[in-house]
Design a protein around this nucleic acid. Structure first.
Lengths: 134, 134
DNA sequence: GCGCTTAGTGACAATGGCTTTCGATGAGCG
DNA sequence: CGCTCATCGAAAGCCATTGTCACTAAGCGC
């Protein structure tokens, strides 16, 4: 329950499959998409397990996740461990990671000014990327 | 389709009921909560209509909405028409509206730097308010 | 007032992402 | 090898929200 090393206790085939896939794909994908990709490559993994594994990886900080306005959650492997935000193209899904330390500080400060503690925040930027604008 | 005044074309009893309720309650409430309140006060309005009316009001800028991490959407009447963000207490739901023009500018600027156009963003701050911390 | 047109309504079904359930499976230890 | 318990996964459940479509009534012209 408190393995400080990986956070994952058992090495199962299913987790290996999910990790292998994540190593190969770029950009954000939904759990459902990833599950379908696994099926396509003949990897026999249940949707439930995909969800569980992804959540596990997010919790241990090995995955990066973002939430679309519609509520759907997207995942991709972390390219930078620092906290950051996403600039996502509405059309093609292309994603740029942006550091926003100024925003972080602002959010924390505003919250504290109002007596809030244990502060967290969400911030996503949406737009149409140059390619899709054409 | 382009009434610049209200945006609402017909005055129905149901819309009046929803508006009347919104005028009386403070803070954010979900569509479901509002619907239940309407039933409690003997106002006969369908859930579908509540959703439609709320969306209509959000579109015309008369209502303010925010989305919980869980995906549930909350509404309340606008206290300020300028664009702003929310600082929400995780426990009691108390909400503070915060202007964040610096954040707006930052988001726009970052997006444009990456060639993105038609830029929008979402930002919510969560925390535990002073009262709930005790 | 009186129709008529059509926006608006609402009971119900459907959607969709995600979670729960619970019996089956297999990883890893001794 | 045998055992135990974390893990798996098919199916059912959850739940806010949206779609369907027959019905209702707002408000216009008369």
């Amino acid at each position: 329950m408190s393995q400080a090393t990986t956070g994952m206790t058992r090495n199962t085939r299913q987790r290996a499959e999910v990790l292998a896939l994540l190593r190969e794909v770029d950009g954000f994908h939904s759990a459902q998409q990833l599950h379908q990709m696994l099926l396509d490559r003949q990897a026999r993994v249940g949707l439930t397990t995909v969800y569980r594994t992804l959540q596990l990886l997010v919790d241990t900080g090995e995955l990066d996740s973002t939430k679309l306005p519609g509520g759907e959650q997207l995942y991709r492997r972390c390219s930078q461990s620092r906290h950051h935000h996403h600039l996502v193209c509405r059309d093609c899904g292309r994603t740029v990671e942006v550091a926003g330390s100024a925003v972080e500080r602002w959010a924390d400060q505003v919250a504290r000014q109002h007596g809030f503690t244990d502060v967290g925040h969400t911030m996503e930027i949406f737009g149409t990327c140059g390619t899709c604008a054409a």
